[in-house]
Simulated assay, not measured.
Amino acid sequence: MTTDFESRLQAAVAAGEIAGATAVVVDRDGVAFETAKGLRAVGGEAAMTPDTVFWIASMTKAVTSIAALQLVERGVLDLDADLSGLVPEFRDLKVLEGFDEAGAPRLRPARRAPTLRELLTHTSGYAYGFLSPDLLRLGGPVNTGTKADYIQPLQFDPGEGWVYGVGIDWAGFVIEAASGQSLDAYFAEHVFGPLGMADTAFVPGPEQEARRAGVHARLPDGSLAPIPFAMPQGPGAWSGGGGLFSTARDYGRFVRMLLNGGELDGVRLLSPQTVDLLSQVHTGERRAGAWKSALPTMTNDVDLFPDMRTGWGLATMITPEAGPNGRSAGSLAWAGLANCYYWVDRAAGKGGVFMSQVLPFGDAKALELFGALEAEAYGR
């Protein structure tokens, strides 16, 4: 029987509003629902399938956060310690305070280095250029595949605000320095291998590449156009903030691990106490998870819950109130730039993943479909 969500997804595909998408709903015991509709790329012939591979962008952040918290549990890292001994770049951080009349940046020394807690909660001061007109004006390297991509001045002193940015990429460098492993090797050994996430990696293998969905741009008339897309290849600087490729099936296993308090199929990644800790808001009264765009080709203005004071935990956004489509208060959620989304409702024991590939982020049609998937999961 075709569900309401499947009908709406198929209608969106037929109308050319979306090329295609995959989705799963999971509970603590397994997959409750799975579907794939449409094509992997506009103008192509390959159909979307449940094992289609997507660039999941910032859905990488939760994986990096879990990896960092594993090292905290082992006593290798501390959430609130000085990290400048592990990351030399933290010893000479600057805060950007605007530009003088001649157009030169006004920089001053940061009062201190960010902590791991601040990197994970986006309170470090590190921003994304597509959210910061000042960083765009400053310019700098983009997608060179090296650590230099992430060297930039802070927007404020660590701990003094909230801004979405590359802090979790720096958390990835912290993991590498503390563990002695490259980030891809650490993930493979400590996250993807234990969880059976065989289709998740920074660099898809040939078999995964053959199943990859194309990335599209939403044009002014609402239509879609395929666009060239590739992440920098090689070990220069694995992006712990946005570099992974995965499938809805694989990420559904990651969601199930969180639903089960850090364990899946008898394999434990985190203690229940740590999962409880990451599920708490660590940003106080600061509004987290909403922004104004500085680069409309990358992201729209975004406020996923305009009537709610959302916060940020140690891995995800947290919605402290019940959501309009069924999720419980205290649920975890986040997304990837090309309009992939997930939620983790630990109270109800449900979660879901929706994957598409269209820019800019915050696409109205993708968000509508993600909302319909969530409503389907709760029988709304």
Rank of each mutant, 00 (worst) to 15 (best):
L277M: 12
G313N: 02
D363P: 02
A315I: 06
G140M: 12
G352M: 07
A372E: 14
A19Q: 05
N260M: 09
A36Y: 12
I318N: 01
E263V: 08
L154N: 05
G379R: 15
T52H: 09
Y164S: 02
L79R: 11
V267N: 11
P220T: 02
F90G: 09
G16N: 05
L270T: 06
G311I: 04
A294H: 08
E176Y: 03
G252C: 11
D80F: 12
E118L: 06
E34F: 05
A113N: 04
E285F: 10
F187N: 01
A329L: 07
G75R: 10
T247G: 11
L269G: 09
G16Y: 03
T22V: 15
R253L: 13
V358Y: 03
E368V: 08
T115L: 08
R212E: 00
G330C: 05
G362D: 01
P226L: 07
G379V: 13
L269P: 07
E101N: 12
P206D: 12
A23S: 14
L136V: 09
S328Q: 04
E118T: 06
C340V: 15
G140Y: 13
E160Y: 03
R249Q: 14
A171V: 07
L79H: 13
Q152N: 08
G242K: 08
F305L: 13
S293G: 07
L269A: 12
V24P: 05
R380V: 14
D169H: 12
S84K: 10
W238G: 01
Y378R: 07
L131R: 02
D250I: 06
A171G: 08
G241W: 06
K365H: 12
R111L: 10
P220R: 02
T247A: 09
F229Q: 06
A68H: 08
Q280S: 11
E368H: 13
T60V: 09
A104C: 02
R253G: 06
G103K: 09
G240A: 14
W170C: 03
F99M: 11
E73Q: 13
T22S: 15
T316F: 15
G139K: 08
L154K: 06
K147P: 00
L136Y: 05
F173P: 00
L119W: 06
G284L: 09
I227L: 14
H122K: 07
D82S: 13
A248L: 11
E101A: 15
G98W: 12
T49S: 14
V267S: 13
A14E: 14
G139S: 08
A217D: 06
Q208D: 14
S132V: 04
E368L: 12
F354C: 04
N300G: 00
N339T: 05
A348I: 03
A177W: 04
E89N: 09
L359K: 01
D82K: 13
E34Q: 15
R40I: 05
F361W: 09
V87Y: 02
L314C: 10
